[in-house]
């Protein structure tokens, strides 16, 4: 498969819209072609950015009116009083919450430990690449 042919298919590859046979061909080519690999990375970045844009909620059409109404109502004494009371209460709650140790789930502990082990091995091998230590891939360690 040529570079030109692969480059036209990268978009489908990233979107998962490809037959298994084609997928293997593209994978094989990208694994041995730094140019196509780089382009694939760019595609992945663009796709993620677009997904994030899609996911962002649209502002409701009446938002400006609602904001104005809120500002007007905040001028009432009642609101000022409530606000004055709420701020210290919220601050106190935040301080207490930050100092209280939160229970950790076992899956969270697993992930923390695996990441610690993986990152140490990655950086041992990376900082001494000709030591023969294998530059493991994070997922390969995670999957153990």
């Amino acid at each position: 498969m040529s570079c030109n042919s692969v480059k036209t298919k990268l978009s489908s590859y990233v979107d998962g819209e490809m037959s298994a046979a084609e997928l293997q061909q593209v994978k094989r080519h990208v694994a041995s072609c730094p140019d196509c690999y780089k382009q694939l990375e760019q595609f992945r970045g663009v796709r993620t950015s677009l997904r994030d844009l899609d996911a962002a909620p649209e502002a409701p059409s009446d938002l400006p009116d609602r904001v104005l109404r809120t500002i007007k109502s905040s001028r009432t004494n009642y609101f000022k009083f409530a606000f004055a009371l709420a701020v210290p209460v919220l601050l106190a709650a935040m301080i207490i919450s930050s100092r209280t140790p939160k229970p950790i789930s076992n899956s969270d502990r697993d992930l923390t430990i695996k990441r610690q082990l993986a990152k140490d091995r990655i950086f041992d091998a990376g900082t001494d690449p000709t030591s023969g230590a294998s530059l493991v891939h994070y997922t390969s360690f995670e999957g153990r």
Binding site: K27, R28, V30, A31, S32, P34, Y37, I122, F123, A125, G126, L135, V136, H137, Y138, T139, S140
Partner: peptide
Amino acid sequence: LSPLHLQGEF
């Protein structure tokens, strides 16, 4: 560079 499932950059 390859195999693809081990790709990563340090």
